[in-house]
Design a protein around this nucleic acid. Structure first.
Lengths: 110, 110
DNA sequence: AGTCTCCTATCGGCGTTCTATACGAATACT
DNA sequence: AGTATTCGTATAGAACGCCGATAGGAGACT
């Protein structure tokens, strides 16, 4: 029953976070849930992975944070993608395409 | 001019090494060259990454090593995939499919 | 009052890859 | 003959980025 989840590849988390935020601003756990949904349950990002990544990306200038209130009246930190984040998303998407293509073609070989 | 090479994702190296060895036994640098060829120059595995991985995989029992002589009359350590390695290759291939699919579908989403 | 869920946070550890460096041996060069 | 270059293996050290464990505050429900 448990949706056999794979531990994610290093370097993939940022991509998924940015992609999630493209839909609009969101708080941490919301992002986590969205990733799980976007990947059909394959990737489950736990707090210990998520928050360090968010902080790193904020420092990097790809996302901006502000305090707000969640749907459940709880103090929550919301994140919004910046213009630099948009560029980063494009860059990482390209990177993923290249990687995915390369490995795919390696695996298809005789 | 330089064939813009991407640094590889963690967990991908083993897969590429095993895939290379499916074609037959090969020595270290040979594997490195084969990976570069299989991926169309996208991945370049340097010695500092390759040898630790080979040693690890040998310890794991996925590959077996023996000394031989290269095409250029040089002392070279050859590697051959074991039965366990074959199984590992299948497992990692499946893993890759799952990951690739999940991320692909996440990126396609609106 | 106590427990549960929601939400954020950090720390220590771990495995993997990268950079840099090294060294022996065979071939090529002059 | 002496030097340089290529081939092939090897390791140490650092960076990187995810993971498990743990913590704690704050609202909601009983």
């Amino acid at each position: 029953m448990s949706p056999e989840q794979t531990s994610l590849l290093q370097g993939t988390l940022d991509l998924l976070i940015l992609k999630s935020l493209r839909a609009g601003e969101m708080h941490g756990l919301g992002i986590s849930r969205r990733i799980q949904q976007l990947t059909g349950g394959t990737f489950v990002v736990k707090p210990g992975s998520l928050f360090p990544a968010l902080h790193r990306m904020e420092e990097e200038g790809w996302i901006a944070a502000f305090w707000g209130e969640s749907e459940n009246n709880r103090r929550a930190k919301y994140y919004r993608m910046s213009k630099a984040g948009q560029k980063q998303l494009e860059a990482e998407t390209k990177r993923w395409s290249r990687i995915s293509l390369a490995i795919g073609q390696a695996l298809e070989a005789s």
